[in-house]
Amino acid sequence: MHRLIASPFLSDYLLLHPGHPSGVRIPEARYNELRALTGPDAAPVWLHDAARQAWGLTLDRPPTADLLVRERSRYGYAKASWEINLGCDYDCEFCYLGEKRFEGLDWQGKQQLLRTMRDAGVLWLQITGGEALIDPEFGAAYEYAHQLGMMVQVSSNGSSLRKAPIRELFARHRPYRLTLSVYGATAETYEKVTRNRGSFGRFLDGLDAARADGLPVRLNVIVSDDNAHEVDDMVALCKRYGFPHQVFTNMSPTIDGEANPLASQAEAHMTPRSVFTGCNAGHTFFHVNPHGIASICKVGRDPSVNLITEGLATLPRLGQIAESLQLRTGGCSGCTKVGTCRTCRPLAKLYQEAGDRRELYCQHGGYGS
C-alpha cells in the first residue's frame, strides 16, 4: 500500500502521507515529474527530502511502490462526506437524521460510488452515519477508499473502537481524523441520552483503545437538556484523555424538517451562530447519502442527483442547485438583516418546516440579535 499520495487539490498540488493531516504543497512541474515515474525509476531527491522533513519517512523502495499519483479531475471537487448507513446502535432523541434505517448500497454499489467520488476529484472523504463503524461493509469500504488515494476521516460514537477488527483496521490504515461525540460524563446521564444500556462503558473502552493506539481523535461535546448539568464534567473528561474538543449546543430540525430535536435543546446554553457569509457546498464539496444520492451538503438535501443511476456527469448540477437553495424565498424573502444573518437558507428552511421557531435561528425572532 502506498505511503505517499501526490494529488491535485483545487488549484494546487499536494504531497500527502495517509493518516496525517499535514501536507506539502508542490508546484505543478513536480507533480508532473512524479506522474511520469515508471517501474524502477529512481525517486527524485526532493521527494526523499520532503518525505523525511514532513513525516520522518525514509523511502527505500522504488517510488512506484511507495507513491500513488492521483489523476486530475475536470469536475473540481475536493471534499465529500458520505453516510455509509443511517443505522445506529444509539437512539438519541435529538438526532437530526430522524428515522435511522439500516439500508443502502450493496458492496458493488459502494465500490462504484467510491470510484465516482475519486473521479470527481475528492481527496478528503468523511465517512459518517448513523454509526459508520457498525455497517457490515465499513472495513472494506474504508480500506477501498484508502486504496483509491483518499484521505479518510471517520465520524463515530466510539462504541465500536474497542473491537479488535476496528483496531487492526486503523493500525493498517490510520484515519487522518477520528471525530467522536460525547453525550455525558457519567453512565446514568450518557445512557439516558443514548437510550442504550452499557453504552458509557463501551464509549470509555473506545477512548482507552484510541489513546493507546495513538489515533488522531477529536471530541464533540453535544449538549442537550438531559446532559447540560454535566457540561463541565464532559469537558474535563476530554482534557483527561488529552484529546482536543469542541462544545456544540444548538440542535437542528431533522433532515425531513421535523421539530423533535428542538425540544431537547438546553436553551440556556445555546450560543449565537457566526454570521453566515456563504460556503463552498455544491461547488467544491458535496454530501452523499447511503443510496448514492448526492446533495450540496447534509442540510440542503433537495434537489439532489443520483450518482449511481445518473453518473459522474451529473455532479456539476450541484453548483446550480447550491445557488438556487441560497435564494431568500418564503419566510426569508425581503429580510432586512441579510448582511448579518447567522443561518444559511437551507437550514432556515428546515426550521420553517419544523414550525418556524424563529427565535432559534432568526435575528428578527429575537435570538442572537
Score class of each variant (00 low, 15 high):
267 E>V: 07
54 A>F: 01
24 V>K: 07
71 E>L: 07
165 P>R: 09
354 A>M: 09
284 T>S: 15
238 C>S: 08
279 C>Q: 06
211 R>D: 03
263 A>H: 07
152 V>L: 01
173 H>A: 13
30 R>F: 08
119 D>C: 02
201 G>Y: 10
131 E>M: 03
326 Q>E: 14
131 E>P: 02
290 P>I: 08
124 W>M: 09
108 Q>F: 05
251 M>N: 06
22 S>G: 15
300 G>H: 09
142 Y>W: 06
210 A>G: 12
144 Y>W: 13
150 M>A: 02
350 L>I: 09
190 Y>V: 00
156 S>P: 00
68 L>E: 04
253 P>T: 06
60 D>M: 03
105 L>A: 04
352 Q>Y: 09
39 G>R: 05
309 T>L: 12
337 K>P: 01
339 G>M: 02
126 Q>G: 07
289 N>Q: 05
91 D>G: 12
80 A>Q: 07
74 R>W: 10
188 E>K: 02
309 T>W: 09
210 A>I: 15
192 K>S: 03
10 L>E: 15
352 Q>M: 13
95 C>I: 04
117 M>P: 07
224 S>F: 02
267 E>W: 03
245 H>M: 05
155 S>A: 09
232 D>H: 13
58 T>Y: 00
180 L>C: 10
67 L>R: 02
288 V>F: 09
285 F>I: 03
83 E>K: 12
329 T>Q: 10
176 Y>R: 02
166 I>Y: 03
289 N>E: 06
302 D>V: 14
272 P>C: 11
20 H>M: 08
361 Y>P: 02
269 H>N: 13
274 S>I: 05
318 L>C: 11
243 F>L: 11
364 H>F: 12
57 L>P: 00
101 R>I: 14
147 Q>P: 06
163 K>A: 12
313 A>N: 14
192 K>A: 10
300 G>R: 12
85 N>H: 10
216 P>Y: 13
185 A>W: 06
43 A>T: 01
171 A>C: 09
142 Y>F: 13
198 G>R: 05
209 A>F: 08
95 C>N: 03
164 A>R: 11
209 A>C: 09
47 L>A: 00
48 H>R: 00
257 G>Q: 07
219 L>N: 11
281 A>R: 03
354 A>Q: 05
16 L>Q: 11
265 Q>H: 11
207 L>V: 11
115 R>G: 03
32 N>L: 14
31 Y>E: 05
360 L>W: 05
310 E>S: 14
328 R>N: 04
198 G>D: 03
22 S>C: 11
88 C>H: 06
32 N>A: 10
